[in-house]
Design a protein around this nucleic acid. Sequence first.
RNA 1: UCCUCGGUAGCUCAACGGCAGAGCCCUCGACUGUUAAUCGAGUUGUUGUAGGUUCGAAUCCUACCCGGGGAG
Length: 371
Amino acid sequence: MFEFDLINTDPNTGARRGCLHTPHGDIQTPIFMPVGTQATVKGVTVPQLHDLNAQIILSNTYHLYLRPGTEVIKKAGGIHEFMSWDRPVLTDSGGFQIFSLADTLEFDADGVNFKSIVDGSKHRWTPEENMRIQQDIGADIIMQLDQCTHYPATRDEVALAVERSANWAARCKAAHTREDQALFGIVQGGVFEDLRLESVQRVTELDLPGYGIGGYSVGEDHELMLSQLGTVAGALPAHKPRYLMGVGNPTTLVRGVACGIDMFDCVLPTRTARMGTAFSSTGRMNMRNAKFTEDFGPLDAQCSCPVCQKYSRAYIRHLVKMNEILGGILLSIHNLHFLLDLMRRAREAIEAGEYKQFLDAWMNSPAANDY
RNA sequence: UCCUCGGUAGCUCAACGGCAGAGCCCUCGACUGUUAAUCGAGUUGUUGUAGGUUCGAAUCCUACCCGGGGAG
């Protein structure tokens, strides 16, 4: 049900062109997954996501568990029915949220205690409880409960997180029963390459249908991650999809694909959109800037998105400055298009066996250093 | 004509004898498995004018100018 077809690999880089089959449709990889934490990609409707050719969106177990509550989504018939999205959904386990949001959290070997950010109430998740919740939510792809580490962290701390994440992966697998869901394991290991490889070894022993690479983009230098990424991704089985979690600036996507990454997700395009930032082929633009006041051209002359066909920089600057909701909406659509189209072009380049040229062209473009 | 209230940053207003400030606006920045239409930084002054009292005045006194309200 979750076959991953490796269509072809690039001869000069680690880039791969694949297709992941799910009950709600196929996902052509490499792919960027828009983030819809609370069962909505903020500001963007389902028809708009369809028009953008979003193939899969990500949602979050932590947030949905707290509100509206897993039971509501279960009664709705699952997350697809609940949010009227008929294409694939991936839910993050919430491991990252517990790690990054909760002010008090206590990891132990068996599970994690945490306080709700909503009302301070106490909760405990074990891998088994987390699987029960994610099965009720009903995404196509679910992530194991893992333990992320801060940066910097000591080697001992990271090693413990690797050990626990691997143990929890096994327990998630044992507790997971829905055959219409794919359970992905998660590689941890911080910035210690040997621990990363140990984590890969431990998690891949479980022969799961896909693997996330987590624990990056938590404050370390981006180059540090990129220097290890090819090795870590390359150590994962070739015939399974590889998902670099939480990474989404354009240059990292382009370079990540070259390292053999198949899937990405990030709040960056939508969050920065709401804050007034536009992605473009020439770099990032802060649409609040005065220089756009009378700039009646499109956000990006190269862009084929519906926003660029219709609206000017001057108008979008006006909306953003006036704090009009539409400004964030239009920029969200544009930014998502930018990343989705970037991945579409990456797929074409891989199919043509020309990903190296694609990568070089990007790295030599004025935009590369701006992301 | 008289009475009264007021005049401080572009705007709305604090400070009421002791370093002239805030919010907004404006300019710029950040955002990476979303607690975020968020957060942060910066620019901005003959305190209506002219005198006076005082060690020291946006603040007290006098005159004038401008505006709101009231009386006639």
